[in-house]
Design a protein around this nucleic acid. Structure first.
Lengths: 183, 183
DNA sequence: CCCATCTGAGACACAACTGTCTCATCAGTG
DNA sequence: CACTGATGAGACAGTTGTGTCTCAGATGGG
């Protein structure tokens, strides 16, 4: 039976989100395969990283679709987005680390497209009067994604319980992003 | 005249916060010195990174002192902390990236001590009734530092205006961390 | 049982980075 | 002007990771 590519990719995410410059040797060991097999599955390290990045971005885009962020109340949309994105927080941590490391045009463009979709959600929320207009939508998007990555790191290192993470992220972020009911 | 070590360190921060695994060659070029001089100033790459890390941690600790986070109203203390830490956001971005790359015991311990001080501030705020108790103080600290690093990256890449950064950080974070005046 | 296929272990050359060296050049000083 | 000290450029070996290869062993189907 051919070794499961997805399991290898998942193991690679686990290693690379902690150590973005991990060697193929470590990735192979973490995936439970030999270095030779890892090279048989992926043409090289760059290809592996790109594939992990593409996987992460695909799942992220799927999460945005699943959360239906263009529909209904913006605050509710953000809550759906949080729930959809929390399982991907480790992937998000990988992507934030990776985007600092490499200059892969494809990954960066896809990341920008995702960021634009999130930004549009916050812009819509501002236009609806739900989100504070004195905070730039770009900053809200940036901060949201930073916090998702932060959740990924915190959960990975055991500093945050996974079952608390969605609530912690949603409450902290929405508390800061939404307009106060009464000054 | 001996080349200014500090200017080299600052240049190193600029490069390493973007590319944590940048080569000595790139760091030297960014600092405007030759690779030979860089090696004359610092015994090696590890020493350089450690020194940059130590500098960042010292400045961070100094910022905590300057902000007098143990005194007075917790919310006001956080605002002072934001103002003191914003100029160091790039250093914070470096530290976050670096801690994922290396396992330098000294840096990690010092980072944990800083994190504990910040955590104590939020814990105090919760005990005073200013901060929401349903969010773990550890998460507040984690999120705060993630956002500071995020500010560093966003400013560095031109996605956030430096003069807006303190306000953006303080308002978003405090909005999420403080208890709502009335439900 | 035999065979096809896949996997793991190891060897190998190649590339990149590091750390050290030498030497020429340049600036400041007496 | 001569001299001292620091710097830049380049060469060099050593180390580490990569990519490819071969070969032996395991696994599963016919």
């Amino acid at each position: 039976m051919a070794i499961d590519r997805d399991s290898v990719l998942n193991a690679a995410v686990g290693v690379l989100s902690r150590q973005p410059n991990a060697a193929m040797d470590e990735i192979a060991r973490a995936a439970g395969v030999s270095r030779a097999t890892l090279h048989r599955l992926f043409p090289g390290r760059d290809a592996l990283v790109r594939e992990v990045g593409a996987l992460a971005l695909r799942r992220f885009a799927q999460a945005l679709d699943d959360a239906r962020i263009d529909e209904g109340d913006a605050v509710a949309a953000v809550r759906r987005l949080v729930d959809a994105v929390i399982p991907l927080s480790q992937l998000c941590a990988f992507l934030t680390g990776e985007s600092k490391l490499y200059e892969d045009t494809g990954i960066n463009e896809a990341w920008d497209r995702l960021d634009a979709r999130v930004r549009a959600l916050f812009l819509r929320g501002q236009q609806e009067g739900a989100f504070r207009i004195e905070l730039p939508a770009a900053w809200l998007s940036e901060a949201f994604l930073d916090l998702v990555a932060g959740v990924g790191w915190a959960v990975q290192d055991g500093r945050l319980a996974p079952r608390d993470s969605a609530h912690a992220l949603a409450e902290l972020f929405l508390g800061g992003a939404t307009r106060r009911p009464a000054p």
